[in-house]
């Protein structure tokens, strides 16, 4: 199972990197979104999969799934959400002010490089 999930995470990262190398801002932000999904999936996989029940003590089980990676992922999800929303508004404002979403055009001019 972990092998399969590693491969899926790898595919997500491949798609994310390819998108991040493109010219449109929206594609780049979609790429970062995919990248964080891949990272979260990988975090969970590295903690070990299906090794017990849900980490709630009321379940009365003999073994529980590792709760620590879950706590880490929860933190990561919130932070990546904050960043993504900031990026989106930044893209929106950049387009409003500069009139383009093409990264090739957003590189200053010859005078200030």
């Amino acid at each position: 199972m972990e092998i399969l999930m590693s491969i899926v995470a790898g595919i997500l990262v491949t798609a994310a990197v390819y998108l991040m190398l493109s010219r449109s801002i929206l594609r780049i932000i979609i790429g970062t979104g995919l990248l964080s999904h891949g990272a979260h999936l990988l975090l969970l996989t590295m903690g070990g999969l299906k090794r017990g029940t849900v980490p709630l003590l009321g379940e009365d089980a003999s073994s529980y799934t590792d709760p620590l990676p879950q706590a880490l992922i929860l933190t990561a999800i919130v932070i990546s959400f904050a960043i993504t929303s900031f990026f989106l508004v930044l893209a929106y404002r950049a387009y409003q002010e500069l009139g383009t979403d093409d990264m090739d055009k957003l590189r200053g001019n010859e005078n200030n490089d």
Binding site: E2, I3, M5, S6, I7, A9, G10, I11, L12, V13, T14, A15, A16, V17, Y18, L21, S22, G38, L42, T45, M46
Partner: peptide, 21 residues
């Protein structure tokens, strides 16, 4: 070029994931 870079990044993640696991 972009595709090669992207596949390389994905392969790196997968290989490291499997090895670490």
């Amino acid at each position: 070029t972009n595709l090669i870079i992207a596949v390389m990044a994905g392969t790196t993640v997968t290989l490291f994931g499997i090895s670490a696991n």
